[in-house]
């Protein structure tokens, strides 16, 4: 008897799966992104994922030397860079390259001073109006949460499988694909003046940003290849860290919690079996 309700639930689910695949083709207009993001094998994916600190440091370098010209990263402070494996002295040195506004002082004046680790990393523009004017009206998005704020829909049935495979790297995969995905617009496709064709872009066929990276524009001192592909991976990983610095802590704590719950559930199961055995007599 107790099998009946689950069986019914299963039947309902099966019927629904059939229906879901049936209606998947029903959408009319063109779907963006045109191409699904490429999958990268990230060090931080999966249940045991951890940051590759070397990669994060390289990613910060790419950000600082290229992206930071237009993109801010407001939620990240210099002190947070210590989590990338930079020493205290290195963090201080990085901060010291920046000026931040402080004040008012005792005379009521605002003044500029050298940044310290406690300061947030200053962005390239004073405000979003200035950012818009400098970029033909398109404000370059802040990097702090971009790796979590851009995730192309996975669609049915992928989103169901993602639960089991723990696929949660849609954001960095998207950023990597976008950075490496610029190409010539196909024959016959009109794209607006001043935009750049990229089939991986989430909101249309083309975006305002031109391909920002190319082979050799950032020098690495750890021997990693100085290629577009490597830069894109590194900066995507860095952006994932910026979006969720606690990711590795989450996974390592999660592992311990899940093991505990698993053992606890086995013990409870055995206890329950024992308790209910008394009923069978």
């Amino acid at each position: 008897m107790k099998l009946q309700f689950p069986r019914i639930a299963g039947l309902a689910l099966a019927a629904l799966l059939t229906m879901g695949t049936g209606s998947a083709f029903a959408a009319g207009a063109e779907h963006y992104p045109i191409k699904e993001p490429k999958h990268v094998d990230w060090s931080f994916s999966g249940p045991m994922g951890t940051w590759d600190l070397g990669q994060l440091q390289r990613g910060y370098k790419v950000y600082a030397e290229v992206c930071a010209a237009c993109h801010s990263i407001d939620l990240v402070a210099f002190r947070n860079l210590g989590e990338l494996g930079f020493s205290e002295a290195q963090v201080k040195a990085i901060a010291a390259e920046f000026e931040v506004e402080d004040g008012p002082n005792s005379d009521g004046e605002m003044f500029d001073r050298t940044a310290v680790p406690a300061d947030k990393i200053p962005g390239p523009y004073a405000n979003s109006q200035e950012a818009a004017v400098a970029n033909n009206g398109a404000v370059p998005p802040d990097f702090s949460l971009l790796a979590k704020a851009r995730a192309p829909e996975r669609g049915f049935p992928n989103f169901v499988f993602d639960i089991f495979t723990m696929y949660a790297e849609n954001g960095p995969d998207y950023i990597y694909s976008l950075l490496t995905g610029y190409e010539e617009a196909p024959e016959g496709r009109e794209i607006p003046e001043g935009t750049h064709y990229n089939p991986y872009f989430i909101a249309g066929p083309a975006l305002a940003m031109a391909s920002p990276l190319s082979d050799g524009i950032v020098s690495y001192d750890d021997g990693s290849p100085e290629t577009l592909d490597q830069y894109s991976k590194d900066v995507s990983a860095f952006m994932m860290w910026a979006a969720e610095p606690s990711l590795d802590e989450r996974k390592s704590l999660g592992f311990r919690v899940m093991i505990f719950l698993l053992i606890f559930s086995v013990l409870l199961y055995l206890t329950k079996k024992k308790v209910f055995q008394s009923l069978k007599k």
Partner: peptide, 21 residues
């Protein structure tokens, strides 16, 4: 109690591995 712990395992799967799913 057993059902709660099994449910917490399911819950934990999302909290720790798919928090934004």
């Amino acid at each position: 109690a057993l059902a709660i712990v099994i449910f917490l395992l399911f819950f934990g799967w999302f909290v720790f591995y798919l928090p934004d799913f």
